[in-house]
């Protein structure tokens, strides 16, 4: 299988603090990877670097066979991205929004109705962004991300604002997409059950480093837990303890 994502010794610091600390990660075609970790672990920074939006301080990033930043445009033509926290431009209707993004990906006249229908929201085609619920906006964002048939789909907290039944519809739709079209999936989520169902591989990040990488069952076993949630809680607790220790050292350090 060929590599869709290749991060080699990637480091990113903000104000002297390493948000991402020497990450090596390879994702191959067709893999469904969950990128997990506590808040502030470095997940979103990692995603933004492989999307070419944030530049790494060190290391190299290749996406869909193109080295960033030089090959950003060619790489992004093969990537779709959606995030639960991104709004729709309020002055566009859903079909205008999707046509606009379809054309940015080189499709003059995208089949918007079919794309919306995939998630059961074809009736929203003429609705304005401001008239949609947050869940509907998330669904439209996901439709935007898959409209051009991307080789790699990157989702940041895709189901954070969705009701369980809509989240199930999204999960089913994404699983079908990956199965039928061989799309590679990289997803971050705080919903461990969802990740266990959607992904065949999980990568745990803590303090900017990869601390576990394998199938959900293997990772849970390696940490002596029954499931990913127990692994997550253990890592989050460890990270909090490390931060408390650092804060205590700062407090005890004599002035000057």
């Amino acid at each position: 299988m060929d590599e869709v994502i290749s991060l080699a010794a990637v480091t990113k610091r903000f104000g002297g603090v390493a948000a991402v600390d020497g990450i090596d990660l390879v994702v191959r075609t067709g893999e469904r990877v969950g990128l997990l970790g506590p808040n502030g672990a470095g997940k979103t920074t990692t995603l933004l670097m492989l999307l070419g939006v944030v530049a790494p301080d060190e290391g190299s990033i290749d996406v869909a066979g193109h080295r960033l930043p030089k090959g950003r445009s060619a790489a992004m033509a093969q990537v779709g991205f959606a995030a639960g926290y991104l709004p729709l431009p309020e002055r566009l209707k859903v079909d205008e929004y999707l046509r606009f993004y379809g054309q940015l990906y080189g499709i003059p006249d995208p089949d918007i109705e079919a794309a919306l229908d995939r998630f059961g929201i074809a009736h929203l085609a003429r609705a304005r962004g401001t008239d949609l619920s947050s869940g509907q906006r998330t669904l439209v964002g996901i439709v935007k991300a898959i409209l051009h048939g991307p080789r790699l789909l990157v989702l940041d907290e895709p189901t954070a604002s969705l009701d369980p039944d809509v989240a199930l519809r999204v999960r089913t739709g994404l699983q079908a997409l990956c199965r039928d079209e061989g799309t590679t999936l990289l997803v971050t989520s705080h919903n461990m059950v969802e990740v266990e169902r959607m992904c065949d591989r999980v990568v745990f990040i803590a303090s900017g480093r990869i601390v576990a990488d394998g199938t959900p069952a293997d990772v849970a076993r390696a940490f002596g837990g029954a499931d990913l949630e127990s692994v997550f809680l253990r890592l989050a607790g460890r990270e909090e303890a490390e931060h408390s220790h650092e804060r205590a050292q700062e407090t005890e350090r004599p002035a000057g």
């Binding site: 080189g106 935007k144 990157v154």
Partner: peptide
């Protein structure tokens, strides 16, 4: 409209 990220992750130059 917080649309910058959406634009920056497309092939748009």
């Amino acid at each position: 409209t917080r649309n910058l990220l959406n634009l920056m992750v497309t092939p748009l130059r």
